[in-house]
């Protein structure tokens, strides 16, 4: 079953987000909120951007999207499914990304800001989670979250260099 939906297909979000702020988006798609669809969409994105992006930027984009999309699958939609919209716009020297879902709001209407684990923790005390937002915060710039009219929107920038 194809996990990716062409944007504008019948299953568009119940509350459409405002028109894309960039007319020349290199990527604009909607996907079902489950971990296999996330995996599929990441493969589609890699294939579509192959050759057009430096490898390092493509690796970063894939990892950041994996973290944010899987977070939406598990927490915003609590593995009950839903829809996620991904928009990637090129600007000079960077990619601007916007991810929108209609799941639950982030606790406190804020993105998590986990600390790095202490370097000398005993094995038994090591964290098994909380790595995702640490990775995202290290890899992106201009990270913003907004809850509005039942939608979550996360925006960020990935620098191309």
């Amino acid at each position: 079953m194809a996990a990716e939906l062409a944007f504008g297909a019948p299953q568009r979000p119940a509350r459409p987000t405002p028109p894309a702020p960039c007319p020349d988006a290199i990527l604009h798609l909607a996907l079902q909120a489950d971990s296999l669809s996330v995996r599929h969409v990441l493969r589609v994105i890699r294939a579509r951007l192959a050759g057009g992006l430096p490898d390092a930027a493509a690796d970063t984009l894939e990892l950041v999207l994996a973290e944010i999309l899987n977070n939406i699958v598990e927490h915003a939609y609590r593995d009950e499914g839903g829809q996620i919209e991904v928009l990637v716009c090129p600007v000079p020297g960077a990619l601007l990304c916007r991810i929108t879902d209609q799941g639950r709001a982030m606790p406190g209407d804020m993105l998590p800001h986990p600390d790095r684990p202490q370097p000398d923790l005993a094995v038994a005390d090591l964290p098994e989670g909380g790595f995702g937002w640490r990775i995202v915060r290290d890899l992106v710039g201009d990270l913003h979250y907004r809850r509005e009219a039942g939608s979550n929107t996360i925006r960020f920038r990935i620098t191309l260099d």
Binding site: L63, V123, A124, E128, G132
Partner: peptide, 19 residues
């Protein structure tokens, strides 16, 4: 490719084997 879930799983295996 390893994401934070994969990393968490690897850490969890290490903790299960220790000490």
């Amino acid at each position: 490719f390893v994401d934070s879930s994969g990393l968490g799983a690897i850490v969890s295996v290490m903790k299960a084997l220790a000490p």
